[in-house]
Design a protein around this nucleic acid. Structure first.
Lengths: 241, 241
DNA sequence: CGCTCGACGAGAGCGGTGCTCTCGTTCTGG
DNA sequence: CCAGAACGAGAGCACCGCTCTCGTCGAGCG
């Protein structure tokens, strides 16, 4: 079932450069399906996304869609990957590598929040409750790490610039080697405690955005914009940026 | 449509103490419906919760359920209120008012996480993406504040005990008066900045739990238990407990 | 005490869903 | 040129939430 998705992602590009008419038609229709699904996701949300509605939108029989996506879950998976890519790109676009680490941290967090507010349903699909019995395929985890990696770059640069407080070395590590690599890589000022703190701050930003988006701050916080930037500043303090 | 729910919640209790047989039967069946729905929620999740399955489970026609809950959303609302009550009760049960504020903070956070891990689908229903076009009725917000209020009590007690750092007073408030009341009430050491920080830490705990539960820490964090307690400690530092 | 009206549960049915299977067509690589 | 794969349409299955009707039964009122 991941076959079809894979062929969508790399598809005719890898196979051979001279694509046949059929392959081009397939790629085009796949893109159209995704576009329609993306529109439906943005308007009615993931739970109400209907294969039949997509088919109607494109003037196709519903059964025809199954030539392109083996199931509704697979279509959702493609949308999830697109979403992670989009929010990751937003984070990267907001990052100015020459700026101060703290400025960069603020910029990335603001960009992620802005993307979430602009695409609430997509954000919910990425970071909200996983859908029914849906288990995120391995394909998604690579794309998912893009925002974290952007923040990790800031952390690594800050460590190299020497703005981080000295690390408190300890024996057992709480962070996976792979994750440590994404979170700044090798550096004496970046030990496990600092990296774990980076994960905390990142998940805290996610908590702030989710609470705001899912309505848990309604009637609690007066100025959501000011509140967010202030708390992101607090997290920067905690991180040592 | 909120009539039926209301009558379920207060129902015969308020009307008159001497309940008729019909009222008792109604209350009993309502409880059975909720119990079956709770079971289904725990096993298949909210998105796959089916009124017809509940009816089958109870040996009823599906249409009969509509005498008790006007819609699937209303049944979900009742489950959400139950969930908020349960996680609030877990938080309150874990709190030992005579202990140190920091100890209480740790205990409450651990209890909330434990409840979330034990009831993942319920937690997702409460704090994950809102379901389809579902807008949380006002009934839920009261129950939702219970965990926050428990944490607010710790904050207030800490302020009265004088363990909090002095507050930095400012003009414009980011926290609603109602929320400020729940977050420790009146106290000179508890100004808006401290209360906002309390909201930050609470949403951070939510972020930590959600990332863990929704799989965003898979392959990133090695020891989730140890990681959580350590980061909760970091948040206590940030809060000044 | 009897009657009336409301609550109740069953059943059929509507329009919707994801998904499967079959069948004729159309393109493509050998 | 032609066999076989890819394709789209259509019918159909089992399920969903929800509505409507209809017969029944109980509870409160006169």
């Amino acid at each position: 079932m991941s076959r079809a998705l894979l062929s969508y992602r790399i598809g005719a590009i890898v196979r051979h450069v001279v694509s046949t008419a059929r392959e081009r038609a397939r790629a085009a229709l796949t893109a159209e399906i995704l576009e329609s699904a993306r529109g439906q996701l943005a308007t009615v949300g993931a739970a109400a996304l209907s294969l039949r509605a997509v088919a109607r939108d494109l003037g196709l029989a519903s059964s025809a869609l199954y030539r392109y996506f083996a199931s509704r879950d697979e279509l959702l998976t493609a949308l999830i990957i697109e979403g992670y890519d989009a929010i990751g790109a937003a984070a990267e676009a907001a990052d100015v590598p020459t700026a101060q680490p703290r400025t960069r941290w603020h910029a990335i967090c603001a960009a992620v929040r802005a993307w979430a507010l602009a695409h609430p349903h997509e954000y919910a699909l990425l970071y909200g409750s996983p859908v029914p019995g849906y288990a995120a395929p391995q394909d998604t985890v690579a794309a998912a790490g893009r925002v974290g990696t952007a923040l990790g770059r800031v952390l690594g640069d800050a460590a190299r610039a020497g703005v981080l407080p000295p690390a408190e070395h300890r024996r057992t590590s709480l962070v996976t080697p792979a994750a440590a690599e994404a979170l700044g890589g090798e550096h004496p000022d970046l030990d496990d405690a600092v990296r774990a703190r980076a994960l905390l701050t990142w998940s805290s930003v996610y908590g702030l955005i989710s609470f705001e988006l899912f309505g848990h701050f309604a009637g609690v916080v007066t100025d959501l914009d000011a509140f967010f930037t202030e708390q992101v500043g607090e997290l920067a303090d905690l991180l040592g940026l």
